[in-house]
């Protein structure tokens, strides 16, 4: 078999994602592992798992594009691109432009606008404050002594919402404790926590055209998409497996370069 596959490695602050695609842009394998403190080890682990799933070995992969916070820590990458480019490319695989990509990551949020031809028009990242990111939800889960995987279900089941006013993650945590002391049910507070994430996203930029949500936070908390739909008249869609969209975009760039010289 002489086909050369393309690999994408997205080393995020929380998780490392790998996607392997063939020249027809079909996903053959993917993996998600915790990034931990050793990005190189995490990228190798995810790479091995994705190759196993794809049923190929490393030598069959031509180009590997790394992206994300730890993109410079992937020794087997043949090139790097920022996660802004890769999330955009990954979304265009499923949805035609013009689209607005909203990526809610572990440590930062991004809003990326692509025009009808798929060309990027603008992008914004949250300021260095992590308010409204996955780190915010992790902090809240910790304060409430709740497993992260229960948040979506509990917020969805709430019969009301307790509003949080603070921007700051630490102050929000204090506010949450005050709400508990005041006797508010935890699931209503959680819905308020989710609403806070949405507010932080909505104030970053306008949401225009079709809104595509990506990132691990959406993958594990799809209820956030429903809250975003309440705030915008735009169509809000989620690609399959939104956590790996950045890695997919990187893999598609790798295939472009390998087979199409782009």
């Amino acid at each position: 078999m002489d086909e050369r596959f393309g690999g994408g490695v997205d080393v995020g602050s929380c998780t490392t994602k790998v996607v392997i695609v063939n020249r027809r842009d079909e996903i053959l394998g993917s993996a998600v592992v915790y990034s931990g403190t050793d990005f190189e080890a995490a990228s190798k682990e995810a790479w091995t798992r994705a190759l196993e799933q794809a049923g190929i070995d490393s030598a069959q992969v031509g180009r590997v594009v790394s992206t994300g916070y730890g993109r410079k820590s992937v020794p087997f990458a043949t090139g790097t691109l920022t996660e802004i480019s890769c999330h955009g490319r990954g979304c265009l695989h499923f949805f035609a432009g013009p689209i607005t990509v909203v990526d809610i990551g572990g440590q930062d949020n991004k809003i990326i606008k692509l025009d009808a031809t798929g060309r990027r028009v603008s992008f914004k990242m949250n300021r260095k404050c992590a308010a409204g990111t996955g780190a915010f939800l992790e902090e809240m889960a910790l304060r409430l002594r709740l497993p992260l995987e229960d948040l979506d279900r509990m917020a969805r089941a709430a019969d009301g919402e307790v509003s949080l006013g603070s921007y700051c993650t630490v102050f929000s945590a204090t506010e949450v404790l005050e709400k508990i002391k005041a006797g508010h049910p935890v699931n209503r507070i959680l819905r308020g926590v989710f609403r806070s994430v949405v507010k932080r996203v909505m104030e970053m930029d306008t949401l225009t055209d079709t809104v595509v949500l990506t990132g691990g936070v959406i993958e594990h908390n799809p209820f956030i998409a429903e809250l975003i739909r309440e705030e915008t008249s735009s169509s809000v869609v989620i690609p399959p497996h939104p956590q790996i969209t950045g890695a997919l975009g990187a893999a598609l760039y790798a295939v472009d370069e390998e087979h199409h010289g782009r």
Binding site: T82, I84, S85, F123, M125, K128
Partner: peptide, 18 residues
Amino acid sequence: RCYSEEQARTNIEAFIEQ
């Protein structure tokens, strides 16, 4: 203290990609 090295570098790199 008001500057995030990684945020700034990524933003600049992404801007040049654009």
